[in-house]
């Protein structure tokens, strides 16, 4: 039971306290680029959750049971990017063949995920920090759900910003970045959320 609780806490902490976009700065490109409409940000977010979780499940054992015993742990980045890129292509292929409906909502965002630093960043930091498999999985799930949460929230704010009367020089990206800063300040308030909980 204690393992389960710590698993949930690890998910929550990598989702809220160490939020992927606002405090670790992974995946800023899609965060700024695909967040103009709520629908597209939802599609991108779900696709990212999907790929990050599967990539974590593959990359951690690959590193621990194959690369480290063979003594080529330095090849980790190459291995991870290969795993992620082929994963994205395979998922895209599967969706194209089997589910046109899913392709309609996720298909165009899939190829962009290969160059999303959140995916590689999570895989890399999992092994760099020497996490256990369960913690790595929690980190993957938490990070990706945190990304989904933040990109959808941000797109909601941005649709409102479109109709707001902003100064001309701030139209578009600058005001979006200032908004992100305010969100980051809000998320800073969550630090120490679990400091009172003892395990």
């Amino acid at each position: 039971m204690s393992i389960f609780i710590s698993f949930i806490l690890a998910i929550l902490s990598s989702m809220l306290i160490d939020n992927v976009v606002l405090s670790r700065f992974y995946g800023i490109c899609p965060f700024l680029g695909v967040s103009k409409k709520v629908k597209s940000s939802l599609g991108m977010g779900i696709a990212v959750v999907f790929v990050i979780v599967i990539a974590t499940v593959i990359c951690w054992p690959l590193y621990t049971y194959v690369l480290v015993p063979a003594g080529i742990a330095f090849m980790d980045t190459v291995a991870y990017i290969l795993v992620i890129a082929s994963l994205v292509q395979l998922v895209g292929l599967f969706i194209k063949k089997k589910s046109p409906a899913l392709y309609e909502s996720l298909g165009i965002y899939l190829p962009l995920i290969t160059t999303n630093c959140a995916v590689l960043g999570v895989a890399q930091s999992n092994t760099d920090q020497g996490l256990t498999f369960l913690n790595a999985l929690a980190n993957g799930v938490g990070t990706s759900i945190g990304f989904l949460l933040i990109i959808v929230t941000f797109s909601c704010v941005r649709t409102r910003l479109e109709s707001a009367n902003t100064p001309k020089a701030f139209k578009g990206l600058p005001i979006a970045l200032i908004t992100a800063a305010i969100m980051a300040i809000a998320f800073m308030g969550l630090q120490g959320l679990f400091s009172g909980i003892k395990l």
């Binding site: 490109c29 046109p100 309609e104 298909g107 165009i108």
Partner: peptide, 23 residues
């Protein structure tokens, strides 16, 4: 992936912004 044709009804899907600004 490149060679697989798009499923029916998805031929004209594009990014909402008409321009992929994320990359």
């Amino acid at each position: 992936y490149r060679r697989t044709p798009l499923p029916k009804g998805c031929e004209h899907l594009k990014m909402d912004d008409q321009k992929c600004s994320s990359c």
